[in-house]
Design a protein around this nucleic acid. Structure first.
Lengths: 342, 342
DNA sequence: CTGAAAGCGCTAACAT
DNA sequence: ATGTTAGCGCTTTCAG
């Protein structure tokens, strides 16, 4: 069961290990006949050079560490696929960990990745989405970034200059709200999102600004943050339905809440979008498949992943990179939004 | 930027590297005062021992390699989450790769994982779902398994005795079909699945058997394999709708095709389940959120992942494991199935 | 309780 | 064109 090494090959080929190394890496000319013999042996024993030994020497592992909060959220596999796509060419491979929003776990994985000497780290979600992140958690990441190229994806840490790649959620929100306004809506609500997360506050701010720009009133009772789940969407829609007056359209922080809103609406007998327009955010695959198909804002998850790796690779080769690489989101108009009924 | 090593610590603490190693691993008693000094230094420099150096020596990496066909298919993140859950305790971590159904890529990743000396490999999808897999692809995996503990998840390779962990798709299919029959259906169709994949053939066979057991006729024109996508579901439903006679219920190879069937049905003005009952397979999250909520068969993806890692760990510690560990699927009755209208 | 030394498998000068 | 040698950073005997 012990794997064969370069020594085994060298011995049987009656050459030195350097020669074997040379044919392995094609790093210097080797006589045709010896090369042939060595290659044959490599075949025969199915020899695979030990990457750890090589990494130890070369000081690089070819591994990129990725920390995501929840792979079960379809947004992240999409980002990952993009990252993988970009990493393909350079032959990088991924050490992936789910933190499930547990900061201690994030720390643990960060530590493991440092021990394993990954070439770079992509950090998504968790602490970098907090409006107020505890100082030691911030410092840990700063520390980490000082020794391993690290990029924060769709998040950031106040008062640090960690490299970031993010979609412009503010612009995305404006896109969605303006779409609703152009459709003729003037009474628009805001649903979902935890208030202590930047995703929420950024969208909230952009929402208010877009309304103000259009000289529309923001009705505070229709501003209903909660969480990011389908259930929270349902819950807040129920709240809305219980009011004497309700908006003709709602903007939801993400597709899940939008779906919750629609489900609760449909169950209450509303027709979407006739009785209420709903727009989401993220453009998860489900958005396309749902009935009615969801109007939403695409974060370009795939592109986000690609870009993050691209930036990481630049950092790894000591190129200068921008502090923030921003991606433009796109409005995807489907069936859940329409002109107001009246 | 160069990381600090055990030598740096030893020098500054004025002890030998062995002593530092001892406090690191708590592998032998060390005088309180020296230990304290060393620990302080470790803190100060935020020293992380180089895992590669250690792995090189210990001949283990703490890494499990996972090859999946498509992480974007929600079934796999679920399996992965289960795997991660089980790996938590032993401190194993994952090298994850998407093969996107490309056999060459599978080979490439397999090779990378061998070079990186992962402690075990979890192989899902791709070639192991083929009814007829090319011999060299089979041999490659056999070869690999002979040197690294390898487990095939939800698949297998004929004429090999590779270790497998799988849900009993045959039993799952029987569950679904019997459910339909108990509801009163006698005219049942079969939709989706590529014919050259074992998932399809296994379900096809189980479907026929369940029908036969109930003394019901299988109408060949209603047996409509195709692929695994939503679109294929739509396509075959359209075919069905164009027939003069159509079944009162259909069993779909997976949830995606079931959703396609429902979408096409709804667009054509049918009401589900009144006009037609639809049952899927997999129980992806979407199944629960869709309108109508989908009756389906749960593969227990999370459990599958856990079990696979459990088996892998047993193999890594040279325990004897069963050739096949089989998991029982579960029927999840929701809204898309009901009694036939007649 | 601590240090010296061997070695894990490989690459990269440096010789020849 | 090929061999020798010195590490990469760590763990683990074996002595003391």
């Amino acid at each position: 069961m012990r794997q064969v090494t370069i020594y085994d090959i060298a011995k049987e080929a009656e050459v030195s290990i350097s020669t074997v190394s040379r044919v392995l890496n094609d790093t210097a000319p080797v006589k045709g006949s010896t090369r042939a013999k060595i290659e044959e042996l490599i075949q025969k024993y199915n020899f695979q050079p030990n990457a750890m030994a090589r990494s130890l020497l070369k000081q690089e592992t070819g591994i990129i560490g990725v920390i995501v909060p929840d792979l079960t959220n379809p947004f992240f596999p999409e980002v990952f696929a993009g990252a993988e796509h970009e990493a393909q060419q350079s032959g990088h491979t991924f050490l992936l960990s789910n933190s499930i929003g547990d900061y201690a776990k994030e720390s643990e994985y960060l530590s493991i990745m440092r021990e394993k000497r990954v070439d770079g780290i992509m950090f998504l979600g968790g602490r970098i989405n907090l409006r107020h992140c505890e100082e030691h958690l911030v410092q840990e990441l700063v520390q980490c970034a000082s020794v391993i190229p690290t990029v924060l994806v769709n998040g950031g840490l106040r008062n640090t200059d960690l490299i970031r790649v993010a979609t412009d959620e503010s612009a995305g929100t404006a896109l969605a709200v303006r779409h609703l306004i152009e459709l003729g809506h003037t009474e628009i609500g805001f649903i979902g999102g935890e208030s202590n997360m930047t995703t929420t506050s950024i969208k909230l701010r952009a929402f208010r600004k877009a309304m103000k720009d259009a000289e529309l009133e923001v009705r505070e009772e229709w501003m209903l943050p909660d969480s990011f789940s389908i259930d929270s969407g349902k819950r807040q829609m129920l709240n809305l339905l219980a009011m004497k007056e309700r908006p003709t359209a709602v903007f939801c922080v993400n597709d899940y809440t939008a779906i919750g809103v629609i489900k609760a609406g449909v169950e209450a007998g509303l027709s979407i979008p006739d009785d209420m327009s709903v727009v989401g955010f993220d453009d998860i695959p489900l958005a396309h498949h749902f009935i009615p198909e969801l109007t939403t804002v695409s974060q370009q998850a795939h592109e986000l992943g690609r870009t993050a790796v691209k930036v990481l690779k630049a950092m790894m080769s000591n190129e200068k990179v921008k502090k923030l690489t921003s991606l433009e989101p796109q409005l995807v108009v489907r069936q859940s939004s329409g002109a107001p009924m009246r």
